[in-house]
Design a protein around this nucleic acid. Structure first.
Lengths: 336, 336
DNA sequence: TTCCTCCATCGAAGCGCTTCGACACCCATC
DNA sequence: GATGGGTGTCGAAGCGCTTCGATGGAGGAA
């Protein structure tokens, strides 16, 4: 194994000089740096991670806690993880995979043993049991999602309120005057995270702003419920021409249900959704949608973490702007 | 930070005794061990990972190289990764996530810097550029999938030959006498990995063994091709009553195509497939299938690695037995 | 010239752990 | 009672790196 003393000897300098040339923590003359770098390349030197971590109390490793729970779209998680790993590398860090299974204990372990410098926690619940721990740990962290009480924590997520607004704005822009939101089941609004509520807020606000007639329908995520929902919506709002769907399992069946009731998409009815792109594309009529920007979320989370590691302060909350992808399910409203 | 000297003082022993009590590498009296363990618990001691790695030249971290390429079923990769992480923890190891993106350089880096003790490489190609590197590195590795030349490497994968056999055996057991295999496109048989060929071998061998009439149809993975394939199969084998599908994108359209040709599944035609469970379940007629046992693959891969790390020798090749899940697409053959 | 400053570099002291040889002690053996 | 072989524990020497204070020399101000 090539070590720093080997490099130092080869370059005719002391080990500390090599170290400083590498870290830039003290000024080194251009000429010396060149010589050191040449020696490093020639000898194929790679600092020993453990030794470095021991001496500097920095491991250059981030922990990534990923969820196992069902109901989370796997490709989105994967995309996120990949983005984290890639971005971390760009900042000279590696990523340690932690499963939810280990829970708080796992976090404490990797922190106490100085295995990681910082952590990214996915799938944060409204009342997440890990919050007190994260607050008490002296290592920086970034949470994906917003808990009920986020004081002292750095959180990032899609701006679901803006996503709800965007879906409505799109429909309004196409001339639709009567719109409905098919939302997540009631439990979701209470239990897990606040994002479902935010969608409703955005939907309602944008509808008012545009002077639209609107209604909101929480709904079980059971495909079987689709027909009933479609029917009910049309009964209550016979002039309905725009629907926003924030309920993944229901999306496809709902499109079918409306068509079976004689409404063609997008001829008679335009639909926008908040769901993964994959799903939106796989529907018979590909749906115009806002997706969770997993890759952006991942890289932004890492950037935040790096700033915190660098001692900078970062905003407590970061909301990513939604982006709407136009597909086949939206069209201008027919002349009445 | 609590260190080993703190524990030693608290327990009234020397640091080396604490170390031996923890590692078991030298005999420690039962009484002393108890005392040490009590002190560890009381003080909340956690060995410093870096220090440990430096002194022992063992980091207790595995690298997991996961693919980004399309065409790989994401949930399967995820399941595998989770299983690796969980199993690694059971052996007191952690998992470092490496993306394919970094390629060989990434592997070399984490090995040279002693960040990891061993590695698991997913998605191994027939002629993988990483093979020479893996052979030259002095750290053990396990490959998921079989390259063309596997000398000196430890590989593990589903036994695709047996999977092909199992699909046929099932059909034969139900009384079917004329069967066909709808396979992957010709390129796959050449380019990537050998698994597609193995399925064909298994299919053919089992068909012969059971005295069945059989034919093999490589096929583009384009849904549009389904109707043509179905038609052609029936033209060539009018008595066809059993089909094995090893072509994921084609599975669903193929079922539809057969039904449109007047054959009901499983009434007139039984279908078995080799594909992820998720896919098999999502078809209108859920398909009896053999899945890639991702979780088992992951834990077995880790077990192999642990044995290698322990200095034991392990078999070069490990093939996992296929398991067939009965669903709605198979039924006994009608009396002719 | 003298003094002071600043820049580039060096030497040495750890970081917290494992490991190796040494050693004391006890019990069995002759 | 001396000898021998285990056991159980200790002390010290590193593992390879970073970092801090010290140092020497160049250059500017007095």
């Amino acid at each position: 194994m090539v070590k720093i003393t080997d490099v130092a000897r080869h370059a005719g300098v002391s080990p500390s000089t090599v170290s400083y040339a590498l870290s830039g923590k003290r000024p080194i003359s251009e000429e010396t740096r060149q010589r050191v770098e040449a020696s490093i390349r020639e000898l194929g030197y790679r600092p020993h991670a453990g030794a470095r971590a021991l001496a500097s109390s920095r491991s250059n490793v981030l922990a990534l806690v990923i969820p196992l729970r069902t109901g989370i779209h796997v490709p989105v998680v994967m995309q996120f993880a990949m983005s984290v790993a890639t971005t971390a590398r760009r900042h000279d860090h590696d990523v340690l995979l932690l499963t939810q299974e280990e829970g708080e204990e796992g976090l404490r372990r990797v922190v106490d043993s100085a295995l990681v410098d910082a952590m990214i926690v996915m799938d944060v619940q409204l009342d997440d049991p890990r919050l007190p721990l994260l607050r008490s740990l002296d290592r920086p962290s970034v949470l994906i999602g917003f808990p009920a009480e986020a004081d002292g924590l750095t959180c990032i997520d899609l701006d679901f309120r803006a996503a709800g607004e965007l879906c409505v704005e799109r429909l309004a822009g196409l001339g639709h005057r009567v719109v409905a939101l098919v939302g997540s089941p009631p439990e979701v609004y209470v239990r897990r995270t606040a994002f479902a509520q935010r969608v409703v807020q955005g939907f309602t606000a944008a509808a008012h702003r545009n002077g639209l007639v609107s209604c909101v329908h929480p709904c079980e995520p059971a495909p079987a419920a689709a027909a009933a929902v479609a029917e009910q919506l049309l009964r209550e709002q016979p002039a309905l021409t725009g629907v926003v769907v924030h309920n993944e399992p229901l999306l496809e069946p709902l499109v079918d249900a409306f068509e079976q009731l004689g409404l063609r998409v997008p001829g008679d009815l335009s639909i926008t959704a908040i769901c993964p792109d994959e799903l939106a594309e796989s529907v018979r009529v590909p749906v115009t949608s806002v997706a969770l920007p997993a890759a952006e979320l991942g890289s932004k989370a890492v950037e935040l973490l790096m700033k915190k590691l660098g001692g900078k302060t970062v905003p407590d909350a970061t909301l990513l702007a939604p982006r709407l992808t136009e597909r086949a399910s939206t069209a201008p409203r027919h002349a009445p």
